[in-house]
Design a protein around this nucleic acid. Structure first.
Lengths: 249, 249
DNA sequence: ACAAAAGTGTTTTTTATACACCCATGC
DNA sequence: GCATGGGTGTATAAAAAACACTTTTGT
């Protein structure tokens, strides 16, 4: 066989020496929204090992034998929180040499690559699995401290994706509770996109006109004022709109 | 130090055994457009080694010591084609176990991960660097054969990105020649998005209203009919519009 | 003169924006 | 009764879509 000729073997051996060896990590940017207080939250974990011991970080893990990237992402999340519903998509891959201090300084040691994932969970459903020393917590995105590795950069990347997707994709319903008021959605959009991104009444009618929100008939009263209808996301009505360009804002 | 306690060392050692070892590859989806014939092209390379010997594939390489992912992407391209201008962005990371036949069947060998990049080049400028046996060629996207690995899937992913970006980002000017007619742009959009994506005259005025195309004054005649103005992309006029949402279609 | 391609303008329809106003409840 | 938040409608402005028409060239 041609590829087993001496020259090819030699080339192959030479080449192999150049190649970097990698461990591949998966880091999750897990967003949630506390509808009560209109706070955009991200799940952080305090590291209990070197490097960056005692430093807050995105929850992540290294990929194991036979495990896909997404499986690794799910595994980490399953270890940290219990959720019924979970939205997960790949975000970006960070692999610059030197991004992990475990890499030998001369850069001839093993490299650490991070494939980041973007996740959305419902705050009410998402029970944080108790860890010793309270090393897992929701942080308000604006109040996130200095994180381990390049995790602040990854978080920034995730925030941008969140803002963008909010405008053309129904991801808001992945973080809202099962049943919500129209004002809940509006507040959510305000929290993420900033105040005055749109007039409430226009936002409202645009959203209803899309046709995949169904009124449960149930009313809920929050303090003074007229009680609001609880709506829920109608996946069946939404199905035909999938892959179609939608405008939510 | 706490992290050097016996239990931690043991945990660490146990954990390490679970972890997969990776080689990381970079695969490029390089698009170009032949304005003369309105053909959307992608650069393919015929493999001259196992696995998939003699099979067409996306041009790629394995990442070397001390090399960033993007550097590896640039390196491959520099080996294949000469270009003055190049648009490059990360696309997606494919890392399912078993995606590369070099991985041992029991999946306890080294894994091969592919970080894909999306590139645009000008057809006129892009001189293919001569390879023996003509193993490098532009293929029309519709006529791409069965590719090595999961490269057809990566290409599909790249095509989707291309279509999406065309609508809100000025990437078209990365594949058009330096100076082009308005009809050239229109044909380019038709080629990629399909016929009847928009009326020519509306497309035309929308584009001009954006204000970053400048008329060079030079006219070009292509067969019968009135000669068309050659325009060029005005980067300075575009700069303030960067990061602003634009609509091209 | 006429076909072909470039370029301009006008009408119609749809969508976005601003904002006024009515409704139901707690206090 | 009136403040508070929920919900509806309407007038205006802007943008998208359709298409008719003029201009300049080659033959």
């Amino acid at each position: 066989m041609k590829s087993n000729s001496p020259t090819n073997l030699q080339n192959s051996a030479l080449k192999q020496d150049f190649l970097a060896d990698f461990k591949v990590g998966v880091d999750n940017v897990v967003f949630s929204v506390d509808t009560q207080c209109n706070r955009l939250l991200v799940l952080l974990r305090k590291r209990k090992q070197e490097p960056f011991n005692d430093c807050w970080s995105l929850p992540g893990t290294l990929v194991r034998h036979g495990e896909s990237l997404q499986e690794a992402a799910y595994r980490t999340l399953a270890e940290k929180i219990q959720v019924n519903n979970l939205y997960l998509e790949q975000l970006y891959t960070f692999g610059n040499p030197g991004r992990d201090p475990r890499e030998a300084p001369e850069s001839f040691g093993v490299r650490y690559l991070s494939v980041s994932y973007f996740a959305l969970v419902r705050y009410e459903e998402a029970q944080i699995i108790a860890q010793k020393e309270n090393n897992l917590a929701w942080y308000q995105v604006q109040e996130v401290p200095q994180l381990a590795f390049d995790h602040n950069q990854i978080l920034e990347y995730g925030s941008r994706r969140l803002r963008n997707k909010l405008e053309y994709s129904p991801i808001a319903f992945e973080v809202l509770p099962e049943r919500f008021t129209l004002n809940d959605i509006y507040q959510l959009y305000c929290t993420i996109l900033g105040e005055n991104f749109s007039d409430y009444s226009n936002f409202r009618s645009r959203l209803l006109k899309l046709g995949f929100l169904s009124d449960t008939g149930v009313k809920v009263s929050r303090g003074a004022g007229r009680p609001a209808s609880l709506y829920c996301f109608d996946a069946i009505a939404f199905a035909p709109l999938k892959d179609k360009p939608l405008v939510f804002i």
